[in-house]
Nucleic acid binder design. Structure first.
Lengths: 95, 95
DNA sequence: GAAATGATTGATCAATTGTTCAGCTGTTAA
DNA sequence: TTAACAGCTGAACAATTGATCAATCATTTC
């Protein structure tokens, strides 16, 4: 049995992806870099909602950002997340 | 962008594994078949709590069960879940 | 049958969560 | 300097969640 710390870290990782909005953001960013407004429009949620989620994704080191003037461009910071989505997609397609 | 149904199914999958108790149950079952009481004792949680979680895991087809008298033995029903845990473990070990 | 055991269930409760709203910061252009 | 724009933030709210408790079911043993 993995130690408590590992379990917590694993749970935290899955926790990020369990929310549909966050999942959509991550999937979108796996294809291209995007700014907050682009994401908000694509997913039909408010800028504020996106911004809140980006803070979480940033804190957990899932995304990185790049500022250009007043725009903030986000992209994935971790290729493992794409792996997770791939494996999970295989899972649901066979269940 | 995947359709709404796929996103929901993906989120649901990650949702199961985001809870430490549920994650510990799944990890334990990936090693051996266990009954409710075994799991409860191993994880130091109540039988009732385990039973509630087993219902969820059963509903989402993550575990299967086998009755033998008054005992119910649970085991994993899906090898993809072990893959997910493997990939996630690699992720956290490198972050 | 009654008691004991393993497991399940429903109700309840505190804690957590994601969104909204309003106001804010920082940057650009007039 | 003002207005407009892109993004961030904290408070507040409803909704969801996971554990606990008590009661119950199902099976075995006495």
């Amino acid at each position: 049995m993995p130690d408590e710390e590992t379990i917590q870290a694993l749970a935290e990782t899955f926790d990020v992806l369990r929310d549909p909005t966050r999942l959509r953001i991550v999937v979108a960013l796996s294809r291209q870099e995007m700014c907050v407004l682009d994401i908000a429009e694509l997913l039909h949620v408010s800028e504020s909602a996106v911004s809140h989620q980006m803070r979480l994704l940033k804190t957990l080191r899932l995304v990185k950002h790049r500022k250009n003037g007043k725009m903030v461009y986000y992209s994935l910071d971790d290729e493992h997340i794409e792996d997770l989505i791939r494996v999970a997609t295989r899972h649901i397609s066979e269940r």
